[in-house]
Amino acid sequence: MAVSSASASSERRVLVISPGWIGDAIMSMPAVQQFHAAQPDTEITVLAKPNLLPLWEMNPAVQKRLVYAGNGITALAILRGKFSAAYLFPNSTRSALLPWLAAVPERIGLAGHWRRWLLTSVATPPNDSAKQHQAWEYATILSATSSVLSRPQLVLPAVARDQATQRVAKLKRPLIGLLPGAARGPAKRWPADRFAETAYALHTQTGGSILAMGGASDAESCSVVAAAVGSSALNLAGTTEIPEWAALLGLCDVVICNDSGGMHLATAVGAPVVAIFGITDPARTGPLGTHDRILQHSQTQARAVPRTSAEAAEALATISVGEVVAAALEALHHGTRHA
């Protein structure tokens, strides 16, 4: 069981079980940050999947991290951690079973999937129109009392910042990030050819450079975007770990993206975001910045959508290249970044 630590232990130790998706993990960070601010002497350990460990290593509210390594090994690691409480952000039965097996005295989470008996306390989502966002569910689990949640915070490693700076050293400003992917699938993806048209239009009108970014599965769509611009574009899909990806997003003057983990990562590092939504509800899962621009035409606004959806595809198709270009130019003109 790999463990990383950022500080010495304190008297009270609590475990936070991270969501499994990068976007959800970032949306949970404001609650963890508020918990840490309210209880600075409590040591917070986050349990996360291996791919999310680098993300949580950049959050300053967390002192230790555990890596999920199978149910038995992970439950034993939790037992050895001697936690007084476990806060469960995922709704899965497994996330409740692990601290139950480790005999953690307090186990708090939403009712979830047939797991009430594994919890000592069931949190109830807030019934407040001002607290619809998913981030407030995590705050409720942690018993956060503030009326306002801060933006997710990430402290980028110096090596990641240096790598990102070197990659873009020869590119002309403005740096325009385009993220044509979305891990959830086609139901959240604006067509790649429209991202390409947007990239070409913005390059032509600003003289700037394009950074096409995403995971390895986004390589094909990012290649389409980069090809539309030529030598003034970089296709970085699948070539960066999370810290360098975050650093590259932080260097961008604007980021254009789908409703995705990359959208939340861009917001966390302060980049102005133009987010393209189909039928998912930005009031529940939108970016947590204060200067983001959301483009959506659909009257349907759902919490979750299937990976493929004709309705979502139609809704995304109604958003024009011109609208996206105009929103990006407005963001560039104002030059406002998140504090």
Rank of each mutant, 00 (worst) to 15 (best):
A6P: 06
A6N: 15
S7R: 14
S9K: 12
S10W: 10
I22V: 15
Q33K: 06
Q34T: 15
H36W: 08
A37Y: 09
A38P: 08
T42N: 04
I44G: 04
I44M: 06
V46G: 07
K49A: 12
P50T: 12
N51H: 14
L55E: 06
W56Q: 04
E57Y: 04
M58S: 10
V62R: 00
K64A: 14
V67C: 14
G70C: 06
N71K: 12
I73E: 10
A75E: 11
I78Y: 01
L79T: 14
K82N: 13
S84K: 15
A86T: 10
Y87P: 02
P90K: 01
N91E: 13
S92M: 08
T93M: 13
S95N: 10
S95L: 10
L97R: 02
L98H: 04
L98P: 08
A102T: 07
I108A: 02
L119G: 08
T120H: 03
S121F: 08
P126I: 13
D128F: 05
Q132H: 13
H133E: 07
H133F: 03
W136E: 05
E137C: 09
Y138H: 12
S146E: 15
S146V: 14
V148Q: 15
V148M: 12
Q153H: 09
Q153P: 09
L154D: 10
L154G: 05
V155H: 13
A158F: 06
A158L: 12
R161H: 08
D162L: 13
T165D: 12
R167K: 14
V168G: 01
K170T: 12
L171C: 07
R173Q: 13
P180D: 09
R184N: 11
R184V: 08
K188G: 04
K188P: 05
R189H: 03
P191V: 05
E197R: 15
T198M: 00
A199C: 06
L202I: 03
L202G: 00
Q205M: 11
T206I: 07
T206A: 03
G208L: 01
L211Y: 02
A212G: 04
M213L: 15
M213I: 15
D218Q: 03
A219S: 13
E220A: 15
S223P: 05
V224Y: 02
V225S: 01
V225T: 04
A227N: 10
T239V: 04
T239A: 07
T239L: 09
T240N: 15
E241W: 01
I242M: 00
I242G: 02
W245L: 14
A247R: 01
L248M: 09
G250I: 07
C252A: 13
D253E: 09
D253G: 01
V254K: 00
V255A: 10
I256Q: 02
D259Q: 02
D259G: 02
G262I: 08
G262N: 08
M263A: 05
A268S: 14
A268Q: 07
P272V: 09
I276E: 00
G278T: 04
T280H: 00
T280K: 00
P282Y: 00
P282S: 00
A283Q: 12
G286W: 00
L288S: 06
H291M: 01
L295P: 02
H297P: 03
S298Q: 06
S298V: 09
Q299F: 07
Q301V: 11
A302L: 15
R303W: 13
V305S: 01
E311Q: 13
A312C: 07
L316F: 01
A317M: 11
A317L: 13
T318P: 09
V321N: 05
V325D: 01
A328P: 04
R337D: 09
